[in-house]
Simulated assay, not measured.
Amino acid sequence: MSNDTLYEIHDTRFRSLIIKNARLEELYSGCRWAEGPVWFGDANQLLFSDIPNQRMLRWEPDGGVSVFRQPSNFANGNTRDRQGRLVTCEHGTRRVTRTEPDGTITVLADSFEGKRLNSPNDVVVGFDGSVWFTDPTYGILSDYEGYRAEPEQGAQNVYRLDPETGDLSAVIGDFRQPNGLAFSPDEKTLYIADSAASHDDTAPRHIRAFDVVDGKRLENGRVFALIDNGIPDGMRVDTEGNVWSSAADGIHCFAADGRLLGKILIPQTVANLTFGGPRRNRLFITATTSLYSLYVSATGAQRP
């Protein structure tokens, strides 16, 4: 893809966030559905999920791609906690786990009010160590990304796991299919994607924003942005508060006021993205079968 067709500029502010002569690089191809990229700066590597192939992969600048974990329990979204440990959403086991430094796995959540979770999808960790994750039904709709099953929960909730007590609370329950989520840099706002239009053209395909109250509750929910091509899935926020969201035609970048600044057009449907590299100015993009990267002028908000 030439740089003349790589970008769509909808607002002049987008020009300061991109590098016009940067090249979109395909780092790997061979996934069935690439997802969940997370950057490990201390190890100079990226981990990401290949959900239907039941594996998690590792990309290293000098070593290419290797298998990090297989089977992966149909792992999807990943992040790091305040101690730098890997936190993963698993469709197959319908749980959220933490990988300890010695490689053992700790289950953080697999049920709510005595019933199994649907299929945890994406996850973020707050400044206080709280774990927030979405729980749509994608992993139990078929045997492709998990195991077909009837949902036990009465809603597709977004949850918060308290770091001190381990208590799990449903912070919002009116989504059709909650998906990607990301905090604003000051964690006063939580952005959550509703991707229900993936299976119903009349369903939402937007990102909602919520005020985070006392680090524990969500209030004042409102539609932040609408994805005009495909659905919103994973997303990240830069240091200026701009929201970078996945979409069918690539990455859509929104200002904090919800205005579409521009698009980065990717040859395949984008599922997720993250900022990485030594200066956190390199976008790593999981898109259908491939892992791409692109340098930008924005800097990813410092997350765990």
Results as ranks from 00 to 15, higher is better:
88 T>R: 05
184 S>R: 07
145 E>G: 11
106 T>S: 00
105 I>R: 01
184 S>H: 10
160 R>I: 10
176 R>L: 09
121 N>F: 05
157 N>P: 01
131 V>R: 12
131 V>F: 08
136 P>N: 05
141 L>G: 07
153 Q>F: 03
105 I>D: 04
146 G>I: 00
116 R>Q: 14
111 S>A: 12
127 F>P: 15
102 D>H: 06
182 A>G: 08
157 N>F: 10
127 F>Q: 14
136 P>L: 11
161 L>T: 01
153 Q>I: 03
120 P>S: 02
96 V>L: 02
152 E>L: 04
113 E>S: 15
134 T>Q: 02
142 S>E: 07
89 C>T: 04
103 G>L: 07
93 T>Q: 09
127 F>H: 15
176 R>A: 13
141 L>W: 03
141 L>R: 15
155 A>I: 11
130 S>G: 13
125 V>I: 14
135 D>R: 06
115 K>R: 15
121 N>S: 05
87 V>S: 08
144 Y>A: 03
164 E>M: 06
98 R>A: 03
109 A>P: 06
129 G>V: 10
147 Y>V: 05
98 R>K: 02
182 A>N: 10
186 D>Y: 04
167 D>P: 00
181 L>T: 05
147 Y>T: 03
87 V>T: 10
93 T>F: 06
135 D>P: 06
158 V>A: 15
167 D>M: 12
172 I>G: 05
151 P>I: 09
185 P>A: 09
106 T>G: 00
184 S>Q: 08
92 G>L: 07
174 D>T: 12
89 C>G: 04
177 Q>L: 12
165 T>P: 07
181 L>A: 09
97 T>F: 01
117 L>H: 08
105 I>H: 07
138 Y>M: 11
182 A>S: 14
109 A>Q: 04
120 P>H: 05
105 I>K: 00
142 S>N: 08
103 G>C: 12
177 Q>P: 13
183 F>R: 11
164 E>R: 04
139 G>C: 00
156 Q>G: 10
110 D>V: 00
100 E>R: 13
122 D>W: 03
124 V>T: 13
125 V>M: 10
90 E>M: 01
183 F>M: 12
118 N>C: 08
87 V>H: 08
172 I>T: 12
127 F>T: 11
107 V>N: 00
150 E>R: 10
167 D>W: 06
123 V>H: 02
149 A>W: 01
108 L>V: 01
180 G>H: 03
161 L>M: 09
104 T>Q: 14
95 R>T: 08
108 L>I: 05
165 T>D: 15
168 L>W: 08
181 L>V: 10
119 S>D: 04
152 E>S: 01
180 G>C: 05
115 K>C: 03
148 R>Q: 14
123 V>F: 02
137 T>W: 05
102 D>C: 08
124 V>W: 09
137 T>Q: 10
94 R>V: 01
123 V>Y: 01
110 D>I: 00
100 E>N: 15
151 P>R: 13
155 A>T: 13
167 D>S: 15
132 W>P: 09
94 R>F: 02
178 P>D: 04
153 Q>H: 09
86 L>Q: 04
175 F>D: 07
119 S>Q: 05
116 R>F: 00
90 E>H: 03
107 V>R: 00
150 E>W: 03
152 E>R: 11
123 V>R: 03
176 R>H: 14
114 G>A: 11
135 D>M: 11
130 S>C: 04
114 G>P: 09
121 N>T: 04
178 P>A: 01
